[in-house]
Design a binder for these strands. Sequence first.
DNA 1: AAGACAATGCAACATTGTTGCAAAATATAT
DNA 2: ATATATTTTGCAACAATGTTGCATTGTCTT
Lengths: 138, 138
Amino acid sequence: MLYSVIETLKKNQLSITDSRKKILELFIRANGALAHADIEHQSGTEFDRVTIYRTLQTFVEKGIIHTIPTADNSVRYALCKDECSEGHHHDDHVHFMCDDCGTTYCLDHVTVPQVTLPQGFHAMQTDVVVSGKCMKCT
Amino acid sequence: MLYSVIETLKKNQLSITDSRKKILELFIRANGALAHADIEHQSGTEFDRVTIYRTLQTFVEKGIIHTIPTADNSVRYALCKDECSEGHHHDDHVHFMCDDCGTTYCLDHVTVPQVTLPQGFHAMQTDVVVSGKCMKCT
DNA sequence: AAGACAATGCAACATTGTTGCAAAATATAT
DNA sequence: ATATATTTTGCAACAATGTTGCATTGTCTT
């Protein structure tokens, strides 16, 4: 477990620091997505707020995590699959937000459908966010 | 034009005030979606920030406008179609965000596709946000 | 182990959003 | 048309979220 954390950081040419190790571990342990506030609470006073912001930013840039567009416009992050790399995200899966417990899931096996756009529009990325009740809250 | 603004407010049992008239007009004139900041800038110092927040909130509740989930997690609002009413939004269309000019469009004629979810998940709402280049920026 | 480099913590600030309350505007009933 | 009841607004104060510069600390390379 810890090994893969360090491996991941090395693979992305990031220096191994406490905050990066800890935050990446949090993502691996989390079954859903995490918001900045979640990380801040779960890590206590261990890291500065600014460090968390910068770490998340770095992870997004390196393709380790991706942001999730949510219906309530709160920023959440989740681990990317292996195909993602620096500057090249391939997060073509559907996201699900539970209205009850608030958990956000990456439905890795549900691919986003093709959307036909009107003349003149060119799609670069398609985000699908489904909300409702998850299996725990039904 | 002004007539329809007042009509809309009356239809939703809202008292006719300067801020509501002005903000609703802004939405009718805008070809895309508006963020809180857009409204704040376009209306100058005419209204208090708080008034704008509350007006937007009221409009959303009444089904006059709807929020748009964006990839960058900024809150944007756009006019609803006529079918929306208090507590009953029917905004089942795709949204498009231009990476160049930042304009957000409601593609009213592109309906959101059906997404098949894993066992245990129950969809209540599906949001699709496509980003790329719009017809003005190609 | 020492120097080069990168990341962190702190402080200060900007932006965004929320709440309570008195003043002003709107709607209602006469 | 006017007085009264109700709603909305503006202000102030606050909370949460996010950003930037810089000295200090930690990590990496040789």
